[in-house]
Design a protein around this nucleic acid. Structure first.
Length: 479
RNA sequence: GGUCUCGUAGUAUAACGGUUAGUACAUCGGGUUUUCAUCCCGACAACGCGGGUUCGACUCCCGCCGAGAUCACCA
């Protein structure tokens, strides 16, 4: 039997890092066995529906490379894939339940239900609706909610992550199947859909674990076969012990894309948050994840989200792509991340800059702040020069003569490449008798006025002879 | 409150009865003739508590404590 998984978000907003994992794991599981992943949009709550949220979800999945085999856009043989379009299917199943005496229309007004609940709270007994089941129930018709008629009993089941589970009769209740607006509740709809769509592995957050007995009762009453259940532990917010949510500032997944995080790094980090293959490997490609993934190695406790590690991993991926696929492969990802000053620069030029700066990037957007001086002359900041840790011991006239000596020597250089520059720089060191920290800091700052930059010879090579000398002269004049 | 789940360094994790409890991020120190980073080397740092079982327990059992989830006409 081949594996069918699904990702079934409700279109209420963007997907954030706290909840993408329930898309990643189903994808990995399906792909590793040549199965399929279905995308189903659970839009039965019309009040919370957000226009455009479906597109946001699709965009996120596409960016991460989590391609679904059935669902919106791609279609499939089990559609429709929007629950709002499957109303008649739910109603059909609901009628079977009514016919079997396992569901009833509930005319009880909400205020009355609220009163029951309050009464139970005051008496400190658990509120179970089945204890207040109405005696005469009308025929089910639009405008009246439909409830399940629970039969209290024990249930045993296996959860692929949590292990063998058991529940007593006290947790079974008459849950609502169809709301008064005619739309099904999640509790009912997902069971019908998963079954109709042939889903073999139901993966979702642990928050659904406590509802499992009611779902099991429903599978039974509906005469449906149970799929395998996989409860995914929460991702915790950086602070506190709460599950990571939007109010903890959980950013949307695509926001990281806009901040220069690579999809590879994002997928890698998230997949390994709460899962490992038992080896000490840290960096995984998508294909490796697909190959190595296994349900039994999903952690059963919550994992805290650590952005620092994500960024570290992103740096690893930036270097990996450049080193393994070439600098042009990395360059292809950098569009939109360059400083404004690079607007008119050629691809060749930008790629040159990238090739000497990429090993300092944590995110692609670092390019914006780290490469400005390659594309336009920096503003002279003599204070930065004079107060520099290594230069503050030197007098201004010393700085000036040092600069002049450097200019004289460098301007004689006929081949302006990294190696020649390095040996010229070394000669200069000998002639002036200065420490590398002093001479090099001076030249580096005069060229860039940036807090940091690549190796001096590489910076000069990319800057070119003319620009380099002009900048040194500008500083020499200003001192 | 009822029911359920979880508990190894600051963080993510390895270990599946016998190890000086391993690795990575972070932090701190050092090296790679300037800076920042990469890379390399090193340091700091953990089995929640208490009982059992056992020759031996992070590992198995029980209790406690702590954390979380859930008790909607939301998903």
């Amino acid at each position: 039997m081949s594996i069918v998984t699904r990702f079934a978000p409700s279109p209420t907003g963007y997907i954030h890092i706290g909840n993408v994992r329930s898309a990643i794991y189903p994808y990995l599981l399906a792909k590793q066995s040549d199965g399929k992943m279905i995308l189903r949009i659970e839009d039965t709550d019309r009040a919370r529906y957000v226009e455009g949220a479906t597109e946001l979800i699709e965009d996120t999945l596409e960016w991460l490379g989590l391609n679904w085999d059935e669902g919106p856009i791609v279609g499939g043989t089990h559609g429709p894939y929007f629950q709002s379009e499957r109303k008649n299917i739910y109603h059909e199943w609901a009628r079977k339940l009514i016919a079997a005496g396992r569901a009833y229309a509930d005319p009880t007004p909400p205020e009355q239900i609220e009163a029951y609940r309050k009464q139970c709270n005051e008496q400190k007994v658990p509120f179970l609706y089945r204890n207040f089941r109405p005696t005469d129930t009308p025929e089910w018709q639009p405008g009246i909610p439909l409830r399940f008629k629970a039969e209290p009993k024990d249930y045993d089941w296996h959860d692929e992550v949590m292990g063998d589970m058991h529940s007593g009769p006290e947790v079974l209740d008459d849950i609502i199947l169809i709301k008064k607006d005619g739309y099904p509740t999640y509790n009912f709809a997902h069971i019908v859909d998963d079954s109709e769509m042939g889903v073999t592995h139901v993966m979702r957050g642990v928050e659904y674990l406590s509802s499992m007995p009611n779902y099991l009762a429903l599978y039974e009453a509906l005469g449906l076969e149970r799929p395998k259940f996989v409860s995914l532990p929460h991702i915790l917010a950086p602070q506190g012990n709460k599950k990571l949510g939007k109010r903890d500032g959980a950013k949307s997944v695509t926001e990281y894309r806009d901040d220069g995080v690579l999809a590879e790094a994002m997928l890698n980090y998230l997949a390994c948050l709460g899962w490992n293959d038992g080896t000490e490997q840290e960096i995984y490609t998508k294909d490796e994840l697909i190959k190595r993934f296994s349900l039994d190695r999903i952690q059963n406790s919550g994992a805290r989200y650590d952005e620092t590690k994500l960024l570290w991993m992103n740096g690893q991926w930036i270097r990996r792509i450049a080193d393994e696929q070439g600098i042009d492969a990395l360059y292809a990802r950098t569009e939109g991340f360059w400083p404004q000053s690079a607007d008119g620069a050629s691809d060749e030029r930008k790629m040159q800059v990238l090739s000497i700066i990429y090993d300092r990037l944590k995110t692609l957007s670092d390019l914006r702040t780290m490469t400005d001086y390659f594309f336009k002359d920096p503003e002279l900041d003599l204070d930065m020069l004079i107060h520099n840790k290594y230069l503050k011991k030197l007098s201004e006239s010393e700085l000036e003569s040092l600069l002049k000596a450097s200019i004289a020597k460098l301007s004689m250089l006929s081949t302006w490449d990294a190696d020649s520059l390095q040996s010229t720089l070394n000669d200069l060191l000998g002639e002036t008798g200065k420490k590398p920290a002093e001479l090099f800091s001076l030249i580096r700052l005069a060229l860039s006025y940036a807090p940091f930059s690549p190796a001096l010879n590489l910076t000069m090579e990319v800057l070119g002879k003319e620009v380099s000398l002009a900048r040194l002269n500008a500083t020499a004049r200003a001192i």
